[in-house]
């Protein structure tokens, strides 16, 4: 997938992040083209979530650079954390869907979806609800608009959460193991939505353990080891022709029968 420099939605260079003395990210780099779908795989604790959370600055890295749209951050030069308002502006362009949904339990599905458009983008409630309904149709939950999260299954909750992220019309959406907390029989309905989004050209980065799915929908796959990308390339290269011993062994765990 080639494109001009303008087609780069996000560029992360040499991102470093430590919690205390524990270095979690040790120079992770990734550049994301418009409409690209990138999957990140890797063992638990390798830093995948932390990397995603650095991309929308839920965690502020301690080193490296991040370019999103017109804004560039050089973290080694940053003297104090960016201001709340600045972070909020950045995050309008970078959506995120969480493993545990994090829906607002005191709001209905529709209210969850329109919260951002009304409160952040300043859309009229009427317009936000119209768009919200289109999004609910898209994720197959048009009849659940007035249900509260407690009344929904895990798969339905996650689809509402995806609609909530889409409602902000971000440049890029980050998905952090969005099917990991689901009962096995509910995984498929969420993957179907993700596949539709990928087919429509949504720019996305997914952290996932669904290797076959990742191979199927991704333009590129990154294998993270100890806070850096040990391999990064097309699914053909990374998943079907792994170079490192580590990746071979990692993939074996997922292809030799049941993964649990």
């Amino acid at each position: 997938m080639m494109g001009s420099a303008d087609d780069v939605v996000l560029e992360a260079v040499d991102i470093r992040k430590a919690f205390g003395t524990h270095e979690v990210l040790c120079g992770a780099s990734l550049s994301v083209q418009r409409q690209e779908v990138i999957s990140i795989i890797g063992s638990s604790g390798s830093g995948k979530s932390t990397f995603l959370r650095c991309l929308n600055m839920l965690e502020i890295p301690q080193g490296g650079q991040l370019r999103i749209g017109a804004e560039t951050y050089d973290f080694s030069r940053l003297r104090r954390p960016p201001r709340d308002a600045q972070l909020a502006r950045l995050r309008r362009n970078v959506g995120m869907v969480f493993q545990h949904f994090n829906l607002f339990p005191h709001k209905t599905a529709m209210e969850n979806i329109v919260e951002g458009p009304i409160q952040v983008l300043g859309e009229s409630p009427k317009q936000a609800r119209e768009t919200g309904m289109e999004l609910l149709v898209k994720v197959g939950l048009q009849d659940k608009a007035d249900q509260y999260p407690q009344q929904l299954s895990g798969g339905q909750k996650q689809r509402v959460a995806i609609a909530r992220a889409l409602a902000m019309r971000p440049e890029l959406i980050l998905f952090d193991e969005v099917t990991s907390a689901l009962d096995p029989e509910l995984v498929g309905e969420v993957l179907t939505v993700l596949k539709d989004l990928a087919a429509e050209g949504t720019t996305m980065i997914l952290v996932t353990h669904e290797i076959a799915f990742a191979a199927d929908i991704s333009d590129r796959v990154g294998f993270m080891v100890d806070g850096t990308f040990a391999e990064l390339g097309t699914p053909q290269d990374v998943i079907y022709n792994p170079k490192s011993e580590r990746l071979v062994r990692f993939l074996e765990r997922f292809t030799s029968g049941n993964r649990i």
């Binding site: 839920l58 909020a88 994090n102 607002f104 919260e115 992220a165």
Partner: peptide
Amino acid sequence: DKGQWEAGHAIGMR
């Protein structure tokens, strides 16, 4: 849950 703060941040709320 701090995930509620994060969900708010993720849709650009202050």
